[in-house]
Amino acid sequence: MAAGGVEFSEFVQHLFLGLVQGSFWVLLALGLSIIFGLMGIINFGHGAFYMLGAYVGFTVSDLIFSPFLGPNAGFIVALASVPIVMFALGMVFERYVISRIYNTENERFSGVLIMFGMSIFLPDFVRLLWGRPGKPFNIPPMFQFSLFKTGTLDITAYRSFTIITAAILVALLWVLIYKTNLGMMIRAGTNNNTMVKVLGINVSRIWRLTFGLGIALAGFSGVMIAPLFAVDATMGELILVQTFIVVVVGGMGSFIGPVIGGLILGQLWALTPLVGRTQYVVQNWTGTVIGPDFWEKASDILLFIVMAVILLLRPRGLFGQEGAFD
């Protein structure tokens, strides 16, 4: 693949970066997709809970544990406790807010509005509680090295850690959904919600756990991404857009959809800037050469274009269930 101006190591480096970006999109999109599949609520507040996860992680790590245990242990404690805290928070939120709209008129739309409201409320709430400037949260010392380094290729430890963690989490989630009783109930509810109710199964408990699970995934993604990006009250707004694209492309109501969608779009995002650096000259319809700067700027817009094309050709997404939006 050492095509033209692109070295092999450069290509691998971009693959690696795309895998990191894709892993986060997969985790977020799965949370979004699980909640949507079972409850029919498009969670516009997903990004806000992701942001909250990062802030909770900062508090647990920097304010509580790091001063006593050191930054490494502080970080591990944060990584372990944030999903638990967010899981509990999600369940409480479902119990006292979301559950009030069940069996009302237009309950799904009410759910969307509630979550949209959270996406506005939570950032300002966080600013009130934690202050307006962002919070420092850095790669813990134990991960500050490179696993492999040559030329432009630099496989850093923390990014590798995020890929592995995301992979383990996806595997665990798969086991949960396909091999446990809870997962069976979630799949049954996603598949035929009326039938589950007719059988006399206590769905409210399943819904509460599922909502908690989705929020825990969002919060965990937030704390895991914090050392790489910035911890800021607005961090959730931007990634939410990309997560929606992943879910739309991969397909709502499926497990494999968000996983494949996230990984493909991650690579698309990372490899597009390389196009302008190959030996191949790309021209537009007037014969003007499209320069490298175009491909660098395009990597974000391309995600939207892919989404538009998918929506035109296959509205349910690559692996989505037909009629998921009915």
Partner: peptide, 24 residues
């Protein structure tokens, strides 16, 4: 033309994708 790396704005926040080119 050759001395500027553009980073998509505002959604893309991983500047690492510009580093291989800078190193070259």
């Amino acid at each position: 033309n050759s001395s500027v790396s553009w980073v998509p704005f505002p959604t893309s926040m991983d500047y690492s994708a510009t580093f291989p080119r800078i190193l070259k």
